[in-house]
């Protein structure tokens, strides 16, 4: 997925800068800071959106909390393999608020530090949950643009 830039402007689009990712206890908890907003962030009404990369259009939303510029987003992993989604795929993570950035979603990523190619360095554990007599493996990871996505894959148990 290509990154959105505000048109005709040198400034990169605002985003949600990741500081910590905790893939534990059936959740993926992401902590960080809102970055590049032009006005103070509203403290209520935020959602974390998981947008399926393909087929496009499928997305899941959960409430997210914001305090000052700090955010905390929690994605329960059990929702990450709905029946209408293919056997494996990628969820891209966003924060959304209808009053912020013209209602446009903010990509969750880690772009402000000095580590590039994070997908080879900042590696998070996989988690698993049972589904349809098999299981689903999910693992958050950074994209080539240093954004945060979650890979999922249905695995059929073979005995």
């Amino acid at each position: 997925m290509t990154e959105r830039m505000t048109e005709g402007d040198e400034q990169p689009a605002p985003h949600a800068e990741v500081e910590q990712v905790w893939p534990e206890d059936g959740e993926i908890r992401v902590l960080g800071r809102l970055h590049g907003l032009t006005a103070a962030a509203p403290q209520r009404g935020w959602l974390v959106q998981c947008a399926l990369r393909g087929p496009r259009g499928l997305s899941l939303e959960h409430p997210a909390s914001v305090s000052g510029e700090a955010f905390e987003a929690v994605v329960p992993i059990a929702a990450l393999a709905p029946p209408e989604a293919p056997g494996k795929g990628v969820w891209d993570l966003y924060l959304v608020h209808h009053l912020v950035h013209g209602g446009e979603r903010l990509r969750v990523g880690r772009r402000l530090d000095d580590i590039r190619a994070k997908n080879t360095i900042m590696i998070y554990p996989a988690q698993t949950f049972p589904a349809d007599g098999g299981r689903v493996d999910v693992r958050p990871r950074y994209t080539v643009h240093e954004n945060l996505s979650v890979d999922y894959q249905r695995v059929t148990e073979t005995t």
């Binding site: 500081e19 990712v21 360095i121 900042m122 554990p125």
Partner: peptide, 18 residues
């Protein structure tokens, strides 16, 4: 070492940089 980082829950604090 990567396994040890997972087991110690250090994946936000310790990085094998290559």
């Amino acid at each position: 070492l990567r396994g040890q980082i997972e087991q110690l829950r250090l994946y936000n604090h310790a990085f094998l940089m290559g």
